[in-house]
Simulated scan of single mutants.
Amino acid sequence: GGSVSDALQIRPSAFDNAGAGLFVKEAVKEGEVLARVPERFLMRPMGYGVVVDDSGEDPEVPDELRDLIAKVPSQNWMLRLALLVLYHQMNRTPHWYDDYLMTLPESFPSIPMFFKQGDLKALQHPNPNAISHRLWFLQQMHRQIYGPIANTHQDPFAPLAKENDLAAGQKPLTLKSVAWAQAVVTSRSLRGSSGGGPGMMCPLL
């Protein structure tokens, strides 16, 4: 089972449209455990932490979404995880992650990925080219990996188009929405203490 320390609270951010966040409301000791989250509630790049049926597949992830995620290079685990986050954010079928998704910000103006090159230089960002490359890769993924399957039976987002009031012929997965999901993962994903391996999303952060 999971547990959350009484020292923690979830409350809206002081900034407009910034969603909610996890805050400490009283002093805590170094090394104190503030939350325990069962592994099955962690969202990972290819699905959740525990396989829960006999087929060896995670039923939370439709085959079409799994196939799309698999086309993204494994080292780009943030984008893989972003596609999973976005799928559940767009899916109107009730899901245990819904309450968490509702707390996410509408935008991420403080994340460098959304800064202009001039702003990055003015702020003396250590590696503005890395930011540009990340945006370039998002564009390539949207055009070359997702583009050929958009609005086909292979598109995991196509069944969600009507639920999200998208116009006929519009790609269900937009570049803007992918960038938003990537920002979610960039700002809120966790990695192990060793820093190795792909990160994961925890429904508290």
Rank of each mutant, 00 (worst) to 15 (best):
G2K: 12
G2N: 10
S5V: 01
A7G: 07
I10K: 10
P12S: 12
A14S: 14
A14W: 03
D16A: 13
N17R: 15
G19D: 09
A20M: 08
G21H: 04
A27Q: 10
V28N: 06
V28K: 05
K29S: 13
R36C: 04
R36F: 05
P38T: 01
F41T: 00
L42N: 03
M43W: 01
R44K: 15
P45G: 02
M46Q: 10
M46G: 13
G49T: 01
V51D: 06
D58S: 05
P59Q: 06
E64Q: 13
L65N: 02
R66K: 15
L68N: 03
A70T: 10
S74A: 12
S74Q: 13
N76G: 02
R80S: 03
V85Q: 00
V85N: 02
L86V: 04
Q89G: 00
M90Y: 08
P94V: 05
H95M: 05
W96C: 01
L104N: 06
S107N: 14
P109Y: 06
P109V: 06
I111W: 10
I111D: 13
P112R: 07
F115I: 02
K116Q: 14
K116P: 01
Q117Y: 11
D119V: 14
K121F: 11
A122D: 14
L123G: 07
Q124R: 15
P126S: 12
H133G: 05
L135E: 06
W136V: 08
F137K: 07
L138T: 12
L138Y: 11
Q140M: 14
I145D: 07
Y146H: 04
G147T: 08
I149A: 11
N151M: 15
T152E: 15
F157D: 00
P159E: 04
P159F: 02
L160Q: 09
A168R: 12
K171G: 04
T174Q: 13
L175N: 10
L175C: 05
L175G: 15
L175F: 09
K176G: 01
V178P: 00
A179H: 04
V185Q: 03
L190N: 09
R191F: 04
G192K: 07
G199H: 04
